[in-house]
Computed example of a mutant assay.
Amino acid sequence: MAFDDLRGIVPAPVLGRRPTGAGGESERHSVDALVARVAELQKKHRERLAREKLPGAPLLRDVVQLPHWPDFVRGVPNGFLRSALFGAIAKGRRRHMSGERVTTLDGLTIIYTGERLDQGDLDVLESLLHTVRLQALGVACSVTSYALLKLMGKTDTGKNRRVLHTCITRLKANAIEIKQDKWSYIGGLIDKAYKDSDTLGWVIVLNPELHTLFAADQFTLIDWNVRRALTGKSLAQWLHGFYASHAKPYPMRMETLLTLAGSEDESPSSGRQTLRKALDALTAASEAHGQPFSYDIRGDLVHVDKKPSDSQRRHLAKKADGLRKRHL
């Protein structure tokens, strides 16, 4: 309920009351009383609306939204980050997949139909999710090419607009079946996409059921500054997302990481060299933006040490507490 909506509901003396005395204590109590009164009136207002929903009357609309994350991060479902769905693939002609199972970590299942997706496509999808998070899913969201390119840190040129158009088209022309933990989703990554004939801006609609992939502990907030610093380094971007989705990464074989990233390098030695360079780039970009990240390769295993986010630290603490209780 907006503040103006309270006029006529909140008694005028409450809204206009001035603190008495020279001290701030009376003022604080007045503010506390107003906050409590407003909360009470809002509750009564909701209860009245619920009581007055008569048979045949339109029901209040259930609004489905994505979580509201801050501007310096991007929210991404873990399934997108722990698989080869948005692969670190070479530029050029892309293979079309038809109902193929995508390489994923254990516990994930992704079946995909459409042209192969890469990290550039993920940049566009992240920007669309970032924009749409401010409103209800399933509702048309109008956004200009300029705004999307600016969100991605790109200049507004004809070439970049054409690339953006191609990515949005590719994200629309696909079908995905994904199951992560107990949550699943079947549909397209973009439900509808078209150009406004008057403004020539984009109108985007995302399926409301996408919210199932953003359940608690099922998505990761990606540091956008680090990802942007890795633009053009697709494997480093993939590694950044993959390790960001883990509170405490466990050692993984180099070959496994390359396969999960969707690498198309058929030479084992070349693949390992590319992986080392990507890890070096990720280390440098993370350090430059205050996100400590380091790695060590022992034999064929990649060991990573990183600073977990606040939510990941809470997850680790909760997990440790659960283990402790089970052993009591």
Rank of each mutant, 00 (worst) to 15 (best):
A2F: 01
D4Y: 01
G8Q: 10
I9M: 09
L15C: 01
R17Y: 04
T20K: 12
G21Q: 05
G23Q: 14
R28G: 01
D32P: 00
L34D: 06
A39H: 08
L41G: 02
K43N: 04
R48D: 14
R51K: 13
E52Y: 14
E52A: 14
G56M: 03
G56Q: 01
P58F: 07
D62N: 09
H68T: 05
W69D: 08
F72I: 01
R74D: 06
G75N: 03
G75P: 02
F80G: 01
L81Y: 05
S83A: 09
L85W: 12
F86T: 09
A90H: 11
K91D: 12
G92D: 07
R93S: 15
R94Q: 07
R95C: 07
V102W: 12
T103L: 10
G107K: 14
L108A: 07
I111E: 13
E115A: 15
L117D: 03
Q119L: 10
G120L: 06
D121P: 04
D121G: 12
E126A: 14
H130D: 14
H130V: 01
L134F: 09
A136F: 02
L137W: 00
V139M: 06
A140G: 10
C141S: 13
Y146L: 14
L148Q: 10
L151N: 11
G153M: 04
K154F: 12
T157K: 08
G158W: 09
G158S: 13
R161Q: 15
V163R: 13
I168W: 02
A173V: 07
A175M: 12
A175D: 13
I176A: 07
I176G: 05
I178A: 13
W183E: 12
S184F: 12
S184L: 04
G188F: 06
K192G: 03
Y194Q: 14
K195G: 00
D196A: 11
S197C: 03
L200M: 07
G201N: 15
G201Y: 11
V205T: 09
N207F: 00
P208T: 05
L210M: 12
T212W: 12
A216P: 01
V226H: 04
V226C: 13
A229V: 05
G232W: 10
A236C: 06
Q237L: 13
H240T: 01
Y243S: 03
P249W: 07
M252D: 00
M252V: 06
R253M: 15
M254E: 15
E255T: 15
L257R: 08
T259I: 11
E264Q: 09
P268D: 12
P268S: 14
R272M: 09
A285D: 02
A285K: 02
H289T: 03
K306D: 02
K306N: 04
A317G: 00
K318W: 04
D321I: 05
L323D: 03
R324N: 07
